[in-house]
Design a protein around this nucleic acid. Structure first.
Lengths: 233, 233
DNA sequence: TCAAAAGTGTTTAGGATACACCCATGC
DNA sequence: GCATGGGTGTATCCTAAACACTTTTGA
């Protein structure tokens, strides 16, 4: 039997740490084990449609909440004990996502945000999902450098501080505040000012200017180099 | 009916121009029209295995001749008139490839190298292969900037002039010879000298030092910026 | 000895770096 | 006022850019 599935790596930042959305499987194989959300494609569905549908069923995330990006296809013949299952992995990075709630009658028992630091090494997930998760996070780290994908981690409107937090959390290094500000401010086709500032929010200090993404995710003419913006002290 | 296929975008440089490997289909749908090589996955095969097998059958390229890289999955429900066919697209870039020869009994009538310049816009290829080709070439152009993939376009041993030709042909711009030389020579984890020089080859002038790739294709710490190396005159 | 291609030197300009220093707000 | 985070100024350093120059071969 040959089947086609989608698996999703949904990343978000919570309390200054990178989290991934995981489910606990309610059925065999790998019952009661943790896995990435995902499932089988149905007739007439594109694989992207299947991914969005499964995300909604298994975690309650509404359609259109996140933009999906393909990571790759996983088709090793031994990746699923049920037989030949080809899976397409998708990556999404989004801010302030709600606590997931599996739909009644779905194949999962539970769903929740798990900090990546709590998954260190080892065989933590079902199927080849450890590998898929690692590839996806690597892709996210690389893409921060040379694309404008970081804006997808933020709200519609965001401050440069919000954007910097994305880089710091995903890269795991502190960046120089002043130089980061200038770098992204001067980059073309990255962020555009809205003219508003963030008045409320409980944050201390001077209100920050608000920006929005300049357009679709694109390749940066001048990359945000990881090595060079790291703060020394 | 749902089926899973692989399509291949094989690029090479011939006479200073970027060429793609195309076939003429021998069966319906799109009989007698040009398409990318590719075909259906068989039981127990990974999708990569299927891609390599089809490449051999349809164009006579031996196994292991090229390293394949995933481009993406194409699964729109109307992309194939036969019904629901999910295709995974692969990209390979390689030097000095032979003239293709379709195997007897394969589904293609002919195979050959076609310069990209002869395909300008329009609906030149079967299925959604125009789209797949465009996405693949875009990916190759971007990856030249921030990965060491250009070495995959060259032979096992190559000169810096060979490497520069890859950039110039794929990007379609002339680069400053001297600055390109220093940039790639000083980049870490890109190229390593072999100590030999290229004596023969019919080329005029001083023999060039030979290099080989430093390792697997990786992300460059300092990207080869397209805009900045372009020669002005 | 001449043309052709490889490789190196050198000046200059612009951007990155590492800070120091102001600005605006809540308490 | 003062702590906190946002924003700007600036001296220094480093690399990219432009192009002249030298080296090594074949004819």
């Amino acid at each position: 039997m040959s089947a086609f599935a989608a698996d999703l790596v949904i990343l978000t930042i919570r309390k200054g740490e990178l989290h991934v959305l995981l489910v606990v499987r309610g059925i065999e194989p790998f019952q009661n084990e943790r896995a990435l959300p995902g499932g089988f494609r149905r007739q007439g569905e594109s694989i992207e449609d299947a991914a969005i549908r499964e995300l909604g069923e298994e975690t309650g995330m509404p359609d259109g909440l996140v933009a999906l990006e393909q990571v790759g296809v996983y088709s090793a013949s031994d990746r699923d004990p049920r037989g030949s299952v080809v899976s397409c992995a998708f990556l999404a990075i989004a801010p302030n996502l709600p606590i997931p709630v599996p739909a009644q009658g779905s194949d999962v028992k539970d769903a929740g945000w798990v900090p990546l630091s709590k998954l260190g090494g080892g065989e933590a997930l079902a199927f080849d999902h450890d590998r898929i998760l690692r590839d996806s996070v690597d892709q996210a780290r690389d893409k921060l450098q040379y694309t404008t994908i970081a804006t997808a981690f933020c709200d519609e409107e965001f401050t440069i501080g919000d954007l910097r937090e994305v880089y710091e959390v995903v890269w795991g290094v502190p960046l120089d505040r002043a130089n980061f500000h200038r770098k992204v401010r001067n980059a073309t086709e990255f962020i555009v000012p809205t003219g508003r500032t963030r008045s409320s929010g409980g944050a201390l200090g001077r209100p920050a200017e608000l920006y929005r993404a300049a357009g679709k995710v694109s390749v940066l003419a001048s990359p945000i180099l990881r090595g060079s913006l790291v703060a020394r002290r």
